[in-house]
Design a protein around this nucleic acid. Sequence first.
RNA 1: CGGGGCGUAGCGUAGUCCGGUUAGCGCGCCUGCUUUGGGAGCAGGAGGUCGCGGGUUCGAAUCCCGCCGCCCCGACCA
Length: 564
Amino acid sequence: MRQSKTFIPTLKEAPNDAVVPSHVLMTRAGMTRQVAAGVYSFLPLGWRALRNVMEIIREEMDAIGGQEFQLPALNPREIWEETGRVEAFGDTMFHIKNRDYVLAPTHEEIMTYHARRVLASYKDLPQIWYQIQTKFRNEARPRSGVIRGRQFIMKDAYSFDVDAEALEKSYALHDGAYRKIFDRCGVEFFIVGASSGAMGGSGSEEFMVRSDAGEDTVAHCEKCGYAANVEVAQSKTSPKKRDAKSAAVEEIHTPNVRSIDELCEFLKIDETQCAKSRVYVAGDEPVLVLMLGNEEVNEAKLEGALGKAVRPGHAEELKEITGADAGSIGPVGFKGRVVADERLKDANNLYSGANKNDYHLGGIDLKRDVEKIEYADLRFALAGETCVSCGATLDVFTAIELGHIFKLGTKYTEALGANYLDENGSEKPIIMGSYGIGVERILACFIEGSHDEHGIVWNRALAPFDVHLLGLNMKKPAVAETCEDVYRRLSEAGYSVLYDDRVDAQAGFKFKDADLLGMPVQVVVGERNAKEGKLEVKVRKTFERHDAPIADVEKEAAAALAKV
RNA sequence: CGGGGCGUAGCGUAGUCCGGUUAGCGCGCCUGCUUUGGGAGCAGGAGGUCGCGGGUUCGAAUCCCGCCGCCCCGACCA
């Protein structure tokens, strides 16, 4: 494609609103433009890259027997009422004002609508149906460019099976296809397993990629692949050892000491000798939570342990419940349920609040001094701790969710009456699986992980073009003629070529633009080289470059592309 | 939805606190000449409802009131 005739509006400076690298670079490289918060246009270059992603997805979905659909974004609200999801989505769903339609945020309903009464027999199953289309969600806060938008392209697939065993097969097919898709796209993914209770399903996997622009914090073990959201992640930690002898409880006057740090400073003790108290309210019941030292309470784990939702107690409540303000609260004499982190199991000689302002207690023995204490894992796994499944060191970082597969079950088929007749003639609901991929996220995520100070660094699979051909001074006949020849030959050899044939751009300008756009290989034709029958071949990723005979350009391109 | 920040030419910005020239600068854009291997030089030029509406004032980008939009942090995320 001739750059002089192609719309690639590059920007030297980053727009003020772009913050994360992928957003900055996609804007600067002329791939995308923002239209509103969370709404983006894909310009020709960005669309080419996005089409590459979609084509990879399409090939792998077709390879497992998937059949592509084109479904409406405009859905009758009625269908969504049948599954109760108008209410479930709430404000996240866009509603049309002058017609009883909604903009589809996903397509379980429509796919199931097509399945019902048509997939009538066990002979019609299994089926894998998918689509690659725009979805709409009224996100409260769109952010990070196309990573969280109000309108975004999603590949979603649905499997329809006769029973749980058959669903396992469909699920496994998708699991395999997803690994291939992300591998081919060149993103380094890992998998977080989880149970998806709210969806009524029995199992799920999230395909995540490490990224500073990520919205989830996960613990990950590189050695064995263990990965989990920090809200549920576990790690092996050493409990505080019980001393042979328990000291007597002593009351200590600690004026103005309110935090563990201040307590340690005041008493010249280590924080591992302290038990931090936090008061939560679970339902109507006050619960005192004890953590070793200054560790943070993992509220998700606390809710899991208590089996109900919790909230931190208000400042006024604390005084009423404990007799003291935050900073002087402790387990001894606490009237109510006491739950301590496992690291404190049977610990003694601890310091904690006295439930009396400006006083702490020393010599606390949880076994001796706290009646009916319970223990549970209530902490966050931290980077550097030990993996529970293999003993290697855990890493904790933020990540972006690119894909999610889960065993859905019969939630939608039952709600919409999508049943089939089995071999015995008895009617049963179809078992579904649901499998999503955020298409733009793959692109953004790839760029997050593959760029340098000059711009984007594409791999072959996603690059909008294989080769960027630069004619340095197009007014010189030797350069122009060589470029035309090379452009024709590379194209005929099957490479997609972006040809910078602009006559008014200086050499340096073209180099900067090419580095920003980031095609894997640059072929540079300058006047001196051209007259000697040579050109320059540069690998964008490494900046490795060398001169080569013009006659060898096809071979040279192949060799350079093999390096990316 | 809570907290914070911002809105001046296509992009980046100065000016706003303390009202008073024709709203300034860099990049980009147009014309001409020169230049041509790492975002060129000179000369000339075009481009602005200062986010919108109302108010105060002789006079508002600047002060006051209301609204809108965008970004960031948090909450939320089937």
